[in-house]
């Protein structure tokens, strides 16, 4: 018998009587008086910085003012052709990226995370290998909790996606928090609207 068959047979034999799934009642979930305020306060608590822009143009203006000497990648308004070529770049060549910009698809007020899927990342390694990360999010895309998040996005639609919350961090040495473990050393969240 293959290991697969053997394992499944044992599980089938040993599993207890079927019990039902619970009913998750959304009425019992926490509510926040102001989703945006809550979201901002958590992002800041977990080491991110939040900037507010009334419109996308205001953000674009601000980006254009940034010094040009660093190697930045802005995926916000990339053409399909540019995206295709970026998707093929090897990690060795992305290692020097200073700042990378992405558009988040959804934000979660309870934990300050932002959903980034493969389409938004363009290249899977880019949001993790860049030194500094900027995530742009429409204010109206903030939901209260993770339950609402999964109601609003179909995670199976993407090959790879992540709820990203703050810059990478570790506390493995004597529980001292250090920002910038393997991934980005900083996270800026730009809220539009």
């Amino acid at each position: 018998m293959s290991s697969r068959a053997e394992i499944l047979a044992k599980v089938k034999q040993n599993k207890p009587t079927l019990v039902p799934l619970p009913n998750i009642d959304f009425n019992d979930l926490i509510t926040y008086p102001d989703l945006i305020t809550q979201f901002i306060s958590v992002v800041e608590k977990i080491g991110g910085a939040v900037f507010l822009y009334p419109t996308e143009e205001d953000l674009a203006k601000n980006i254009s003012l940034e010094p040009n000497e660093t190697y930045n990648i802005n995926t916000l308004n990339m053409s399909e052709a540019e995206k295709l070529s970026l998707s093929k770049v090897h990690s060795l060549d992305l290692e020097r990226v200073h700042t990378a910009y992405f558009r988040g698809k959804l934000g979660v007020a309870e934990n300050g995370s932002i959903w980034l899927d493969e389409e938004a990342m363009v290249n899977r390694v880019l949001p993790i290998i860049c030194e500094h990360l900027v995530l742009v999010l429409d204010k109206n895309l903030i939901v209260p909790t993770m339950h609402h998040a999964y109601q609003n996005i179909d995670v199976s639609k993407t090959g790879y996606g992540t709820f990203l919350a703050g810059p990478s961090k570790t506390a493995d040495i004597e529980q001292s928090l250090v920002i910038g473990a393997h991934g980005p050393r900083s996270l800026k969240v730009c809220l539009i609207g």
């Binding site: 979660v108 309870e110 909790t145 993770m146 339950h147 995670v155 993407t158 090959g159 709820f163 990203l164």
Partner: peptide, 25 residues
């Protein structure tokens, strides 16, 4: 996943969620 991602890191370190909750499909 909503239930478990809400429980896991709050129970582990007191963070509201880990920095990366990555979905590999």
């Amino acid at each position: 996943l909503a239930v478990f991602l809400r429980l896991l890191t709050r129970s582990a370190t007191g963070q509201p969620i880990t920095t990366y909750s990555s979905h590999f499909n």
